[in-house]
Each structure stands twice: as C-alpha cells, then as structure tokens.
Simulated assay, not measured.
Amino acid sequence: MNQDPALVSIMRQGPYLIASIHTALDDSQMVRFQHDLVDKIGRHRSRGVIIDVAALDVLDSFGSKTLRNIAEMARLRGAQTVVVGIQPDVALAMVLLGMGTVQVETALDLEEGLAYLDDAVAPRAAVDARDGRP
C-alpha cells in the first residue's frame, strides 16, 4: 500500500486477505485502500477477504458505501468478503442513518470472520479442485 502503514494493513493468510483499518480514513485514503485491496485479491488469487473495522469509532456514508463496493468488486473477482469488528455505537449510527451493509456479510470478530469464510469458501474450493481449477 502506498499510504502510511499505521492507517491500514493488508496481510495474506492462506487463501484469504485480512485488511485491518487502524484509524479513520479520509475519502481519498478509502479509495486508495479499495484499489489496493481489489488489486491484491487478483494478485494473490484470494478466495476470501476479511475487513476488520474494530478500530473505527465512526463510519460515514462514503466509508459504508466503499465497503459495499469492495465486497461487490471482490465478488466479481471470485472472493467472498466479510466485515468484522463493527462497534456497537457504529452499528447503531449506521442503522439510524440508513447506511446498513445489507449486501455485505458481517461477523462479530476476526475469529468468526475466518469461520464464515471457511464455511463459504471450502465447498467452492472442493468443486474447483475437482474441475482442475487453481
């Protein structure tokens, strides 16, 4: 990523990418994060993406829309996405402002996010292996 490593980290964990947002991002940083993450999905042939937002105490409408866009782009590139760590106050504000993540899977924390991806991705990987796909 081209930005300060303290803002966002993207790590590879087997067939998954784990992206942690460490602090609030402005719109241009959010767009850069989106671009970098979607690029890495293809580069690493990732089957799943976890976006950890536990460090955020606010998520504006642009950030919420960008997370939905990332999930859709990842799906089009063949990867499942799950957002984890949404704080209670952030969830309440998102619902009250109509900024839900209906199109995006969510989980309580990283452990549940990994379990979700294991359940969602493992059956598809088995079918791909039978068909001879990587």
Rank of each mutant, 00 (worst) to 15 (best):
A125T: 05
I51F: 14
V58T: 12
G98S: 06
V95R: 10
G42R: 11
A91Q: 05
I70L: 11
V8R: 13
D89Y: 04
K40M: 14
V82L: 10
A120K: 09
S9N: 14
T101S: 13
H44Q: 13
A93L: 07
D27R: 11
K65P: 03
F62G: 09
V84G: 11
R124K: 13
E111T: 04
M30D: 10
G98M: 11
L25Q: 02
A115M: 07
R133W: 14
I86Q: 07
R43P: 03
V104Q: 06
G78H: 05
N69S: 10
D57C: 07
I41V: 12
D57E: 12
D89W: 00
Q80A: 10
H35E: 15
D4I: 04
P15F: 02
A79S: 15
D109W: 01
L108S: 00
K65Q: 14
H44S: 12
R45I: 12
G113N: 12
T66I: 14
G63T: 00
V53G: 09
M99Y: 11
V127M: 05
Q103K: 02
P88F: 01
V38F: 06
A126C: 04
H22M: 15
E105I: 04
I18Y: 05
D119V: 03
A79T: 10
L59S: 08
A91R: 03
D4K: 06
L97N: 14
L25S: 01
Y116L: 01
D39R: 08
E72S: 04
L117C: 08
I10C: 13
L110V: 01
E105Y: 05
